[in-house]
């Protein structure tokens, strides 16, 4: 069976270094299996998060050879035999230890998103939505909150001063999902600019590139939100809305 050198980051905020482990792999193994093998043999205290090992919970995010990925969905046969593979924590977030970082930033941002406020139901008490009405938002609901998009987003990663007013790609699609919910009554288009900082996004699309769920974060989430903001300053749209007397949503 092929053998690899795993160059794993070990350390805490006080200091750390990459440490090499020689590991023999078995058929079909993924990077997370290799990390578990290191834990079971050489380094029982090697810290790493994981849960489902099936690409569904989004816990085992790391940077493998410098690319943000899920360890459980990265097959070892992706690499050349004998290759040295670096495994680093998701560097955008403060380090706790080894491969584990403090992702509480994301949980704070989650709380700030104005929640769903539903229309009243149909006269028979039921809510009706057609499949085509929920398709767009369902794509965003696939998000497993691995926070790889937040990790790779250069606004958070390289320009930390913006963190207080920048929500990041994960929450742009959360907001877009609410905006496209067929029964919602809250207008978040102004809010997404003033409170979520969508204007800071320069649509360089790294979030989309790293998304393990292949959600079109930029094309289907961020850009439509930017366009909805543009609607608010578009006189043509303003006139059309006046003309149609369209019922507006309540601002967040």
């Amino acid at each position: 069976m092929p053998t690899y050198t795993m160059r794993v980051f070990r350390g805490d905020p006080g200091g750390g270094e990459f440490k090499d482990y020689r590991v023999e792999t078995g058929e079909g193994m993924v990077v997370l299996d290799v990390i578990h093998r290191i834990q079971a043999t050489e380094a029982p205290d090697l810290a790493c998060r994981w849960n489902c090992k099936a690409g569904k919970c989004g816990s085992c995010s790391a940077e493998i050879n410098g690319k943000p990925r899920l360890m459980c969905m990265t097959r070892m046969n992706l690499f050349e035999e004998g290759e040295t593979i670096s495994v680093a924590p998701i560097r955008t977030f403060p380090l706790i230890r080894d491969l584990v970082t403090d992702v509480s930033y994301n949980y704070e941002k989650a709380k700030q998103v104005p929640p769903l406020r539903l229309k009243p139901p149909d006269p028979d008490g039921k809510y009706r939505m057609m499949q085509e009405d929920v398709d767009r938002a369902q794509e965003f609901h696939k998000c497993i909150e691995c926070f790889l998009c937040q990790d790779v987003c250069h606004v958070i990663r390289d320009h930390e001063e913006h963190k207080p007013k920048f929500a990041g790609p994960r929450f742009f699609i959360k907001i877009a999902g609410l905006a496209m919910h067929p029964l919602d009554t809250v207008d978040r288009t102004k809010w997404v600019g003033t409170h979520a900082g969508v204007g800071l996004c320069n649509i360089t699309k790294c979030c989309t590139e790293v998304c393990p769920e292949h959600i079109h974060i930029t094309d289907n989430g961020i850009i439509p939100m930017k366009e909805r903001m543009a609607d608010n300053v578009d006189p043509v749209v303003w006139l059309l809305r006046k003309f149609r007397g369209a019922k507006g949503k309540q601002p967040a």
Partner: peptide, 14 residues
Amino acid sequence: GGGGGRTYNPGWHT
């Protein structure tokens, strides 16, 4: 037994 410290130590947790 357990090696390492108390900070996020999977060996200890196991």
